[in-house]
Simulated assay, not measured.
Amino acid sequence: MSAHGFDLDLTKPTQSGVYFVGVADLDRLAGAAARDDLCVCRIDLAGCRDKGELLRRLAVALQLPPAFGHNWDALADCLRDLGWMPAWGYVLLFEHVGELRQAAEADFNILLGILDDAATFGNDNDRPWFAFLALPDSAFDDGHVPA
């Protein structure tokens, strides 16, 4: 985000979405979200290489309900309704996503789709909902957003 001089207003549900950012952007985004009284969740994916580990880490970081089914459908349902974490909006900050992206590209892409669906659901319900996935700054060296 910072490389392009683009800043989002985290209080506007119409800007909800899934964004790739540089590693250095996460702390700034966390500060902005906290300032705006949004719920901030950090998810560290260092060493995460498959769906099972991803779902375990999400369950811990997001304090998912005990009934969480540890599957894609359950994750989608939980991310649309984060009612156990009462807030007027949500910001999920994913660190170290590169390893999962390389080791399990299909799972990574499913995660992106689920996050995008949750952000759309947030927008449709007038609730800010953002997911920021940090990549090394080198991923942005050619001036394009990573695919």
Rank of each mutant, 00 (worst) to 15 (best):
A76V: 07
L115N: 03
M1Y: 13
A32V: 10
S16G: 04
D81K: 11
D37G: 09
W88V: 06
T11D: 11
P136R: 10
G17C: 01
N123T: 11
L54M: 07
N109K: 12
R28L: 13
A46G: 09
L58T: 05
A46H: 04
C39V: 09
D107G: 09
D7L: 14
V23N: 14
T120N: 07
N125D: 07
F132G: 00
R49L: 08
G143F: 08
A34H: 12
R56I: 02
V60A: 09
C48F: 07
W84S: 05
L38Q: 13
G143I: 02
G69P: 10
R28V: 13
A87Q: 06
E95I: 09
A134K: 13
T14S: 07
G17D: 02
W72Y: 00
R101F: 12
F94D: 01
L55G: 03
W88H: 14
P86S: 01
D107R: 05
M85C: 05
Q63K: 13
D27Q: 15
A76D: 06
L115A: 03
P66R: 12
G31H: 12
E95H: 08
V40P: 06
A103G: 03
D126C: 06
A103E: 14
F6Y: 14
C78L: 03
D27G: 11
A3Q: 13
D141M: 08
G31F: 09
L92W: 10
L10T: 05
C41H: 11
E105V: 10
D73Y: 10
G98N: 06
Q102C: 10
C41L: 15
F20T: 06
G52I: 00
L82R: 12
L115Q: 09
A67Q: 14
D107L: 00
L62E: 00
L112Y: 00
C39W: 14
G83F: 00
A106T: 12
L62H: 11
A24T: 15
Q102S: 13
D77S: 05
A139L: 07
L79P: 00
S138Q: 10
L135G: 05
L62C: 10
L75H: 04
G83M: 03
P86Q: 01
E99R: 12
A24K: 15
V145T: 15
C78G: 02
F132D: 02
P128L: 00
T120K: 15
A33S: 05
A103R: 15
L64M: 11
G113V: 04
E99M: 09
L10E: 03
A67T: 07
D37H: 12
F94C: 06
V18T: 03
E105M: 14
R57W: 05
D116Y: 06
S2F: 07
G143V: 02
L75S: 03
E53Y: 02
W88G: 07
P86D: 00
H96W: 05
V23I: 14
E99Q: 14
L92Q: 03
F108I: 05
G98V: 15
A33G: 12
D116M: 06
L82P: 01
G89P: 01
L112R: 10
R127S: 02
S2G: 14
L93M: 04
T14E: 15
S2T: 15
Q102E: 13
L26R: 11
D137C: 04
R101D: 04
W72D: 11
D73E: 07
F108V: 04
D50C: 08
L79K: 01
H144P: 04
S138C: 12
L8H: 14
H144S: 07
N71S: 10
W84Y: 09
E99F: 08
Q63V: 08
F108N: 01
